[in-house]
Design a protein around this nucleic acid. Structure first.
Lengths: 332, 332
DNA sequence: CTGTTAGCGCTTTCAA
DNA sequence: TTGAAAGCGCTAACAG
């Protein structure tokens, strides 16, 4: 293992000089020595020991990213956005997947704290259980107390900079658009009740329907994934329009209807939420609410990395855009 | 920032004792002291400084994962498999995306070396340029010389443990299955020629067709993604069956045909490769070659982490299974 | 511009 | 068992 000291000796300079040319930021080393050091480093095949560097500097070059599930394109898109900004800043990213277990999210924050990462980004819906949230906040506060920066993509419940998708509004606008098509009888394929995002989408949708004086949608719960959508959709009947609280569930619903011989949009219209790029080629094309996923991830990390806004946490709301495609059309 | 020393002092024990109960592996501390230390750590909110630990131990608890593109479900699936084994071993994962730039892959190996990660996993097709491969190998050798472990999911060109998808064989079997349906005139939507995986798939397919005495398929190149498949498909004509070298390109092809009013499988059959789970609900369901993606990622990391097989690199071949679905049927 | 030197926080012999 | 002390490799004053 080649160390800086080896390089310094090999180049005939002091440790400090070697450090300055190889890792120091502001270059203040004479050209000749600089050249010698670089040559020596190359000849010896020197690689900075980042652990030592982190220890000495008291600051690391990595950020932590905590997502629910990387194989869910929703998270992959957000993570990709965040990773691009990390990369542009020369930061490595350490990633953890919770598989929707809030305990693991808390554990990851603790671990990332131990790693002394520069910032941690929590991506995904918060949970309704206040006790869980409180414990997560405690862990985050602990991390922040020692200089860590935090941002979140989700609900603004953590007291940190947050990028908030406007789930209620998006769902409400979708509801109005669907009602505008002539639908009166809706079913909602809802996610688990302990996740806030799907719950908000249900409430936003339901609230708008109510305001329009239409009959309340039937709410069918399922897991927040393709299987959940499939399962919930099998219980749908007597409605002309189905709102799945995310695209992935909508895909499950489409599959379910197909298997049952129910035509979409002939027999029933189906809409989702998120506008997942990977799902763009579905047949029929899915009506949905577009969220700028990659931007959200990028923006959140920028907030975490940027100067703290006078100590107060900032919340940026991202409004989704309703996109009506062929999976929905008027009833009858 | 609470340090181990703070904890030790608070508990009235030595630094060494505190270290042993909080981080040491083999427990050799008396119960009473142990309790005192744990209490002190909890009261003070102590978090191990992993950088210091890594420096002192000379070994870190993180592994590096280098993939082409996280938003491509192919890589997401493999990464997920690898991350599950990492997690089961208490390892954090640091991830880098190259966006298919070989230079960045080399740079990541260097960076991960600097991080002194325990192992690095390179996921994705190798390139045909021997010079690039040589430089990557040099970087890897450098890393391994200092104790780093490496594994690869892709072609066995790096001199490291590798999980090799049998692209040629899979494509050949697919070709035979398609010919078995009665097709004689094929087009291949190929990826870039500098990537070995797509090239192997083309060769495997073409070779099998040739063996059957059928006319050579026309090869249309495009980028190794949805857009590439779309673009290449617009140039297809006069064939009854199209083989896209991966599912993502096949999706693009399907979209292209739909836009042009070409019916699949009515006018033309389409097959892909990989069997991406997220794409399972495509219409029509895609014929493809199934690769056990998550297992491949898991297996590769296990190889990297396991004992080195007598110093010799091991190569495990994963054979794909041909799956004929509704996107293909006999011609005419 | 360059060198000396004191740590950064933790692990790990080596003694007691 | 427990403690003392010597590093791990690098950075950052502080001198010169």
């Amino acid at each position: 293992m080649v160390t800086l000291e080896d390089v310094a000796r090999h180049a005939g300079v002091s440790l400090a000089t070697a450090s300055r040319v190889l890792n120091g930021s502001t270059r203040q080393v004479g050209a000749p020595l600089r050249a010698k050091v670089e040559l020596a480093a190359a000849e010896l095949g020197y690689r900075t020991n980042v652990a030592a560097q982190t220890l000495a500097r008291g600051a690391s070059n990595v950020i932590g990213l905590v997502v629910h599930d990387l194989t869910d394109p929703y998270f992959a898109a957000i993570a990709d956005g965040a990773m691009r900004v990390a990369e542009s800043q020369g930061l490595m990213v350490m990633i953890g997947t919770t598989h929707r277990d809030p305990e693991r999210e808390i554990a990851y924050v603790s671990t990332l704290n131990a790693q002394r990462v520069r910032a941690v980004l929590l991506v995904g819906s918060r949970v309704t259980d206040p006790e869980t949230t409180r414990r997560l906040r405690t862990e985050l506060d602990h991390y922040r107390a020692s200089g860590g920066r935090v941002a979140c993509v989700g609900q603004d419940l953590l007291g940190v900079d947050t990028v908030v998708p406007d789930n209620r509004r998006g769902a409400a606008e979708l509801a109005r658009a669907l009602a505008g098509l002539g639908h009166r009888d809706f079913a909602i394929l809802a996610g688990p009740d302990w996740l806030i995002a799907p719950r908000d989408r249900v409430e936003g949708f339901t609230g708008a329907i109510e305001e329009l004086g239409l009959p309340a949608p039937r709410v069918l719960h399922g897991s927040f994934d393709r299987e959940g959508g499939y399962a919930a959709a099998t219980r749908v009947s007597g409605v002309t329009c189905v709102f799945a609280v995310n695209d992935v569930m909508a895909v499950g619903a489409l599959a379910s209807f197909r298997d049952r011989g129910v035509r979409v949009p002939g027999d029933v219209s189906v809409a989702g939420f998120d506008d997942i790029l990977t799902l763009r080629d579905l047949v029929p094309p899915l009506s949905t609410v577009r969220l700028p996923l990659a931007d959200m991830g990028a923006r959140a990390l920028e907030m975490a990395l940027g100067p703290s806004e006078g100590g107060r946490a900032e919340a940026v709301t991202m409004t989704g855009e309703v996109i009506l495609r062929e999976s929905t059309r008027g009833p009858g």
